[in-house]
Design a protein around this nucleic acid. Structure first.
Lengths: 338, 338
DNA sequence: TTGTATGCGTTATCAC
DNA sequence: GTGATAACGCATACAA
């Protein structure tokens, strides 16, 4: 046994069990390659010595850490918190651990976080969206670090996600079908954020197709207050009868602003969200929004990433979104007077 | 240079820079202990070789990983998502990375997660609350793994948190002062959860002190639906004029149920929350709740844990909670008829 | 099935 | 300030 009250090592265990260190190692990493009898001896020695393998040594020798990194804009956004939670649950119990880093929507910081995780020995990465400096993808390729992108889709990289354009198009179509023609959009910041950008541009494209365009567009950072403030500005244009929001938090902020402005929803104005997070069913009235399968996405991403890590074939997966029609949509006011 | 297109090692860098590996190592870990001139040479070699230190080797030799583990009940609860987010931001940029694990409020799984993180070489741990098998604390002590507890307070362990009892007591006092006497409590599950238990028992104790007791008590798992359902059951007792909830999500669920039951809030029934997460200001009316400084707590926890890891003195810190009086409280209906 | 011996890439302890 | 060199603890070809 090593002197002092230090941690036991394989050597200690091997000595106590009367086997070689190789056998001890096998008991831990490939139990079926050792006789049940000797395995029993070894496991007993492990228990009595209170042994647990040294992480650094294991990583150094095996060239893998069992650590998976996830780099998200922020955990404050329920969308990512839930996705990460599901992702983590889908990781095999003892095999992997999840290293989480956030970058506050700052591309430069995202890059640093990615590098930090790889430096920490991450076996694979979960990233959000496709938008990032090509140099990052090259760097990842050189390092041979597998990754999966989520919350979006595309064919340039492996992903488990959904089509933001399809989602917003379905929603705008609903609003148009209700009869709205004076529509504004309350979007999240689109710079370096393909999810926000696709939602905004997707909506814009559909309108253009119908020969229409937005009455107004606001681009604001994530946050309740930002949504509320921007909504007030958008509604300064009294012609507007519907405000399509890029995410549920902005929509919730808009809804709160509407209440405070004395506007009735949906009688006076239609407000729609995107994501269908918890708050969407807490607002009053409950929010009409686009449901995204965050949970399932997290699971699928975990599965795909493991395949890539094991060098097995991995198939990107596109999940469907769905309109959840609740209480914040209605025909425009003018229709009621017809 | 190592053969193939493998990653460069210290040896490669040392060779290219014309120095020893020791000097390369120093440049990375104690730059001031090397002459600016040689440092420049080394850094250049590092850049051209695209070198980055091997994590396992570093951990093995230095006996520290720079990884900090956080074990929370779930990331789905905004309280923990925000706290973790703040905690992570407060960690020195390149020095530490955060390993996150969740256990879905299952004590057995929490234990496994703690062990997994320690096995992954975590230099320190962030845990939630005090309630857990003493064996875990002993195990941690043997392994000499520093930890900080949050979202609660106590003198048995280092913590950065707040007093759940004081928080709920202030709230119940407010409700009592409004004139309510027929109060029910909608609590989270208290088994193995000292935060929920302290909130429930703290409230109960205050009532007892006033010679009162709850009309009814419901204990339900975290979740909007659970809150809604339990609220409906609690209100089956028509005498109840106030429902104190153990957290904001349960309160939001209760509020939604109230709407659907045709109850006016706060005219017909007072509903209060705890935590002051985002949803508290999205409900209609906005929720009267207990504000907890999640962000500050995350930061303080990070600071304290780093001190403990560096074997410096660390002082537990108790953060204050505060009543946020918004729109869901009012005197009981009977008062209006007086 | 089990044991032997070597390599993994850094850090740290010495001398110089 | 810098250089040689010995740990660090485990995994894994290879041999038996």
């Amino acid at each position: 046994m090593s002197d002092r009250a230090m941690h036991a090592t394989v050597d200690d265990v091997a000595a106590l069990a009367g086997v070689s260190t190789a056998t001890v190692s096998r008991c831990l990493n490939a139990p079926d390659r050792v006789l049940p009898a000797t395995r029993k001896k070894v496991m007993e020695a492990i228990r009595t010595l209170n042994y647990s393998p040294n992480f650094g040594a294991r990583a150094l020798a095996s060239r893998r850490t069992g650590i998976i990194g996830a780099v998200v804009p922020t955990l404050e956004n329920a969308v990512f918190a839930h996705g990460i939670d599901a992702f983590e649950h889908a990781l095999p119990e003892g095999k992997f651990a999840l290293l989480v880093a956030s970058y506050g929507y700052d591309p430069q910081r995202e890059r640093e976080q990615i590098e930090a995780l790889v430096a920490r020995g991450a076996d694979g990465l979960l990233l959000v969206g496709f938008d990032r400096d090509p140099a990052i993808y090259e760097w990842l390729a050189i390092r041979k670090v597998p990754y999966v992108l989520a919350w979006a889709c595309g064919d340039a990289h492996p992903y488990a996600g959904f089509d933001n354009v399809a989602g917003i198009v379905a929603m705008v179509r609903l609003v148009l079908d209700l009869g709205h023609r004076n529509i504004s959009m309350l979007s999240g910041l689109t710079a370096g954020n393909d999810r926000a950008r696709n939602r905004l541009e997707g909506a814009r494209a559909l309108l253009a197709e119908k020969g229409l365009s937005f009455r107004g567009v606001a681009e604001v950072p994530y946050g309740l207050e930002n949504g509320a403030r921007a909504f007030a500005e958008l509604m300064a244009d009294r012609a507007v009868t519907a405000v399509v929001c890029g995410n549920d938090v902005l929509a919730a902020g808009a809804l709160r602003a509407a209440h405070r402005m004395g506007l009735r929803v949906p009688e006076d104005v239609t407000i729609t969200g995107f994501d269908d997070i918890d708050i969407a069913s807490i607002t009053f009235p409950e929010l009409t929004t686009v449901r995204v399968p965050h949970k399932r996405m997290g699971q699928e991403a975990a599965t795909l990433l493991q395949h890539l890590i094991d060098r097995k074939s991995g198939q990107s997966i596109l999940l469907p979104t769905k309109i959840v029609a609740r209480g914040t949509h209605a025909p425009p006011p003018s229709y009621k007077n017809v």
